[in-house]
Design a protein around this nucleic acid. Sequence first.
DNA 1: GACTTATTAAACATTGTGTTGTATATATAT
DNA 2: ATATATATACAACACAATGTTTAATAAGTC
Lengths: 189, 189
Amino acid sequence: MKSEKIDRRVKYTKMVLKESFINLLKSKHISKISIKEICDDADINRATFYAHYSDQYDLRGKIEEELISDIKEYLENGSFNDPDNVSLDMLVKIFEYLKKNAELCIVLLGDSGDINFQKQVMMIVREQCISAWTSSKSINPVDAEFIYTFYAIGSVGIIQKWLMEDIEKPAIEMASLILKLANSGISAF
Amino acid sequence: MKSEKIDRRVKYTKMVLKESFINLLKSKHISKISIKEICDDADINRATFYAHYSDQYDLRGKIEEELISDIKEYLENGSFNDPDNVSLDMLVKIFEYLKKNAELCIVLLGDSGDINFQKQVMMIVREQCISAWTSSKSINPVDAEFIYTFYAIGSVGIIQKWLMEDIEKPAIEMASLILKLANSGISAF
DNA sequence: GACTTATTAAACATTGTGTTGTATATATAT
DNA sequence: ATATATATACAACACAATGTTTAATAAGTC
């Protein structure tokens, strides 16, 4: 999996920079966070920051990428009833993963969040849905794209609300609510 | 309607600042736009900018507020078949309004957009939906909030996609697609 | 025409930016 | 263990943007 051997120093530098950055994001908007501030907090030289990231938005992007590929890997290693469709157990897995990383997800989906990140989250299960719908349900591809966008962004919105307000609600309830809404909508086609 | 008489100079200043800012937003991310840049483009003194806005994010926020209250006013002045529910003609009105202001909406919902603005857009028809669902369909209020979030953010996502990729598709097709998906989902409860 | 107020220009201290050079510490490979 | 490579630390730099203040001027209002 980890093909490139990463220098432990680099690993440490990136780790503390991310930690400090995420902590700062909890208290203030990304636009108000300076590189100097991140570096002071992480006790890393500013020149070292620039050796790895171009600015705070780049750093945020890298953190997002990592999280997304982490989820994907996590899903690939799971065995699901129906790997070609989005099943209840797959959704539950996703919700559980997000809950486990709630601290980070809240920041990335909150006010200092990134619209592009929402899109990446929603793309995680895109392939499965589109192909399942167009083949078995005979929905035309253009409509399928719209419908998918609708349900996927809607799900991200529900996830935001869940993480920030109702985190105690069990993952399976969230997953089945979404599945119920989506399936009944799809069957109208 | 316009109770406070606004000095023409102030009106002009705000107008050109907004114009220049929106134009800049088309070509670069908000974080890369400086106050100086906006002012140079608008030919307005920097001190004057600070007399009205604290920074570019504040300016963006004010533009968003204006757009939202403009939509709301526009909807209040429309006569709809069923003013207590979200009807097809109301949705069509909204989509037509957004299309008329596509240039601005694309910027505000795009990469330089604001997650908070998405929420404001989705709140436009919140009251009508929640009250209609909880009264006539006997959905409990907590579920109603989740379901509303799901459909509202999903709709914003569809709007983004529509504005940026398929703006030629007629507003009524978009509105009826959303209504079809939402109504069939709701009736599962 | 008298008034009020917004904008301007200039100057200012402050802060952050992005880059550079050299020295040092740490990691990897033989 | 030693040699080599390289990431980091540190200090210094020129530059740009920030946010505020002043007095003068322009343009608005009544």
